[in-house]
Computed example of a mutant assay.
Amino acid sequence: MDEGERLVHASSFGAAAVAYAEHRPDYAQRAVRWALEGAPGVRVLDLGAGTGKLTATLVALGVDVVAVEPDPAMSSELRRALTGIGALQGVRVLSGSAEEIPLGDGAVDVVVAGNAMHWFDMAVAGSEIARVLAPNGVLAGLWNVMDDGVEWVEGLAEVSGSAAIGPRDTPASWRAETAGMHLPKTGAARFSSPEQAEFPHGQRRTADSLVATLGTRAGMLVMPDEEREATLGRIRAYLASRPETARGEFTLPMRTAVLRVRRR
């Protein structure tokens, strides 16, 4: 994806902020604990915080959270989510981006990004992240990926196409895509070699709500309406044909995958 496409995809979520908040999954708590492991303190920046899916998990773990998000519609849903769990007063929610973080030098011990790091311009964001991290601080990207080791999920990926289930959306593709390409490109010597880990996760869905979830993917949001409806129709038909997903609720097998580096 070239820079123009990246910007279009990255800015597509605001129009679907309500659906994103309703349908996107949270993150496995074990994965978030691993992301924070070994940090020098508990000051955490959730960068590209979106509607607060990762922020809420951080709050549950009792860390001091600052959430930074560039899109006002996504921030509005984030505040709504934090209000719902009684945590709005305990979390600073700031307007900003990975390329322009509104915090001082060494302000946080950990920077995390939930399904967002691949949208950062690391040529700029790498230096910004290094700037706000304390010495020995941690940078961790987290992604929820579908476990295509399960036969019906593998079939779903084939039917859905790359706009709905693309790079980073299954374990093997995530490992390849995050092996190095999403790490800071400026000042990279200030970060350790990357570590990858995956943790079991799942999301309760129905066929309709899984279709809605896939409809919030960036590739789907920027797709022409006719093509989008045709793709969602194929997904509906596939889910209706499978005994695992045709009736009622089921668990979508997932993993929360984490890429972690440390600031030297």
Score class of each variant (00 low, 15 high):
113 A>M: 10
168 R>M: 14
148 D>R: 00
260 R>I: 01
148 D>S: 11
81 A>W: 03
261 V>Q: 04
156 L>M: 08
109 D>P: 04
207 A>K: 12
209 S>D: 12
97 S>I: 06
208 D>Y: 02
225 D>P: 01
259 L>Y: 04
30 R>L: 14
211 V>I: 12
112 V>G: 05
35 A>C: 12
48 G>Y: 06
230 A>F: 03
200 P>K: 08
45 L>C: 09
102 P>Y: 12
103 L>D: 08
182 H>G: 03
71 D>L: 08
156 L>V: 08
243 P>Q: 07
99 E>Q: 12
262 R>E: 14
54 L>I: 09
260 R>T: 07
88 L>P: 03
42 V>Y: 01
130 A>K: 13
53 K>R: 15
17 A>D: 01
232 L>M: 12
26 D>P: 10
96 G>M: 09
255 R>A: 06
161 G>I: 09
19 A>L: 09
244 E>M: 04
141 G>H: 00
8 V>H: 00
221 L>Y: 13
20 Y>M: 08
168 R>F: 07
161 G>L: 11
209 S>Y: 02
208 D>T: 11
150 V>A: 02
217 R>I: 03
79 R>F: 00
114 G>L: 09
109 D>H: 14
176 A>Y: 02
45 L>Y: 07
82 L>R: 00
171 P>H: 08
83 T>K: 09
113 A>P: 10
257 A>T: 06
17 A>F: 02
247 R>E: 14
72 P>S: 13
7 L>V: 14
16 A>E: 06
32 V>C: 08
190 R>H: 13
93 V>Y: 06
225 D>G: 03
40 P>L: 10
51 T>H: 03
27 Y>W: 12
174 W>N: 03
241 S>V: 10
249 E>P: 14
210 L>E: 05
19 A>P: 06
89 Q>F: 11
198 E>A: 15
68 V>L: 06
221 L>E: 03
212 A>T: 06
175 R>I: 00
123 A>L: 11
162 S>H: 10
192 S>F: 10
210 L>F: 10
140 A>G: 02
74 M>R: 06
151 E>H: 08
173 S>V: 14
31 A>C: 07
229 E>R: 12
61 L>K: 09
249 E>W: 11
